[in-house]
Design a protein around this nucleic acid. Structure first.
Length: 234
DNA sequence: TTGGTGCATATCCATCGAAA
DNA sequence: TTTCGATGGATATGCACCAA
């Protein structure tokens, strides 16, 4: 998918969860909305190059949205957690994710489980329903090794249990890591950050939940799925 | 002092009800 | 039937407050 025209800047600081002060290349200092509720470990280095979009929606308090950050002066990471869902949806529709191709209908944000919503529900006449939960991976710690989550996530663990429940009910369930960081070559559960989540993934896999990882190519112009990555659960 | 609980935060999007 | 506005859910952390 194509980004709207993004504006380059420099990160001053991120604070209050949803806010970030950024100095644009014009010299103007703005407060942008940070659409990422995670800890964003290693993705909020002060003075890092960032790119923001500008909205014309008059109802918004903050016109700018932080979209991309440069990490370690060589990689790009998409911090907007709303984009991976769209990117994955686009990739599935175009048949670029072979494991999830060929379904007649793909619906976004369908209610299921205990008050949750599944990111994508794939259906076909002669196949079981397929529940796809998309997670955004932006944490790179060493030698191309990406980790998820970047902070303790009870909700994420709840989603795993609900995916396992869908398998028990006779459906197909997939945890799909959308790697929005150009330096990551493989994905692993972050047991050092959230051991309960790491254990829950193993349990879910043992019950039949599938785990996939696909990496996006990111530039200030576009973001699109380009490569399947290995997932290491051990 | 520590641990637990609840609220605030900004935005997007789906859903629902009311009005045209 | 369609459109529009209101509402609520989702997201994770920091902070205030209270009890032990």
């Amino acid at each position: 998918m194509q980004f709207p025209e993004l504006i380059e800047g420099r990160l001053i600081k991120r604070y209050k969860r949803f806010l970030a002060d950024i100095e644009l290349i014009t010299g103007e200092v703005i407060t942008a909305h940070c659409p990422n509720t995670g800890s964003m470990r290693r993705c909020q280095q002060e003075n890092a190059r960032v790119w923001v979009s500008k909205s014309n929606n008059p109802k918004r308090k903050l016109a700018y949205t932080w979209e991309i950050v440069e990490v370690d002066k060589q990689y790009l990471a998409c911090i907007n957690t709303g984009l991976p869902n769209k990117v994955i949806g686009e990739a599935m529709a175009q048949g670029e994710i072979s494991e999830l191709s060929g379904y007649a209908v793909q619906k976004a944000e369908v209610k299921y489980g205990q008050g949750s919503r599944i990111d994508w529900l794939l259906s076909d006449e002669d196949r079981p329903l397929c529940y796809v939960e998309v997670k955004n991976v932006t944490l790179l710690e060493e030698d191309g090794q990406g980790y998820f989550p970047d902070a303790v996530t009870d909700r994420g663990r709840k989603h795993l249990y609900e995916l396992a429940d869908m398998v028990q009910a006779g459906h197909r369930a997939v945890l799909l890591f959308c790697v929005s960081h150009t330096g990551i070559e493989s994905v692993r559960p972050a047991a050092h950050i959230d051991p309960k989540y790491a254990a829950a993934i193993k349990d879910a896999v043992a019950q039949g939940v599938e785990v996939l990882a696909y990496r996006a190519d990111i530039t200030p112009k576009h973001i699109e799925i380009v490569k399947k990555l290995p997932v290491e659960l051990s």
